[in-house]
């Protein structure tokens, strides 16, 4: 079967909306409902966060959701169990995002097999560096039709960006600023130069911009410079409430897509 992320980027070139949430938060068994709600409300791509005890590249919101998720009893085994039948209802591409150690303990090969079995289309593993990925893991990811998404930041040098572009197989995750997630500075204030520089590089891969995208305005602005954007912390905050997911998810997404 064709990888769903490839299909998405072939059919949609702009305003792609990707949403991240931490699996197991706010409640242990919310995972499937959140995914279904996100799809129904028009999200194009979902990043399912695998919680880790030490999320060094994340800000307070995702740190907290990870901590609560783990306290709730989330594990990679359980997450795969929850997602077992996800493809019976959900068609959009799904990505697993998280730190390497839980995947490493699960067994990278076994992890990739599980992803293929369930219908996961890609991974984002920030602390798996490009060199190590290519040296040890690339063949097994390819074998299971899994894209490993790589990141670039404002500090990434041009030659490194070229290297990452060459090694990327579907899209590049553009970190909007030098920051951990949810840093919440306004995108347009200081990134235009960086966005324009990347835009003019004619990379072979499409790009999504993430980190610091929190509302309609920042989403719309990011979409001017890339094929779409990724919302994480702001969404995690929005569903951290007493309001039912069937109300909080549509509320957040509608607000995002109409107030740009």
């Amino acid at each position: 079967m064709k990888n769903r992320i490839n299909s998405l980027f072939e059919s949609k070139k702009e305003n792609i909306l990707s949403v991240y949430f931490t699996a197991g938060f706010p409640n242990l068994n919310d995972t499937v409902e959140i995914i279904q709600q996100l799809e129904i409300n028009g999200v194009d791509l979902i990043e399912i966060g695998m919680p880790f005890s030490d999320p060094t590249a994340d800000g307070p919101t995702i740190q907290r959701s990870s901590e609560i998720s783990l306290k709730n009893g989330m594990s990679l085994e359980l997450l795969f169990e929850q997602l077992k039948n996800i493809r019976q209802t959900v068609k959009i591409p799904l990505i697993l995002m998280g730190y390497l150690n839980p995947v490493y303990q699960f067994g990278v090969e076994r992890f990739c097999e599980k992803c293929a079995e369930i219908g996961i289309d890609g991974t984002i593993l920030p602390d798996l560096p490009l060199d190590e990925f290519e040296q040890y893991y690339k063949p097994v990811f390819e074998k299971h039709n899994l894209h490993n998404i790589l990141l670039i930041t404002p500090q990434t040098t041009e030659s490194r960006i070229r290297q990452i572009d060459a090694a990327s197989s579907v899209f590049i995750y553009m970190v909007s600023s030098s920051s951990t997630t949810g840093a919440g500075k306004k995108v347009e204030d200081f990134q235009r130069g960086y966005f324009e520089r990347i835009q003019s590089m004619n990379l072979k891969n499409p790009r999504l911009i993430g980190f610091g995208i929190s509302d309609g305005a920042t989403f719309e602005n990011a979409c001017k410079y890339a094929n779409g954007a990724i919302i994480g912390s702001a969404f995690v905050k929005a569903i951290d409430s007493e309001i039912k997911l069937e109300e909080s998810v549509p509320g957040f997404i509608k607000n995002l897509l109409t107030t740009g």
Partner: peptide, 12 residues
């Protein structure tokens, strides 16, 4: 050992 760093730390 190694340097299992997120890209955000790569340049430094």
């Amino acid at each position: 050992g190694g340097a299992w760093i997120p890209e955000m730390m790569y340049t430094n």
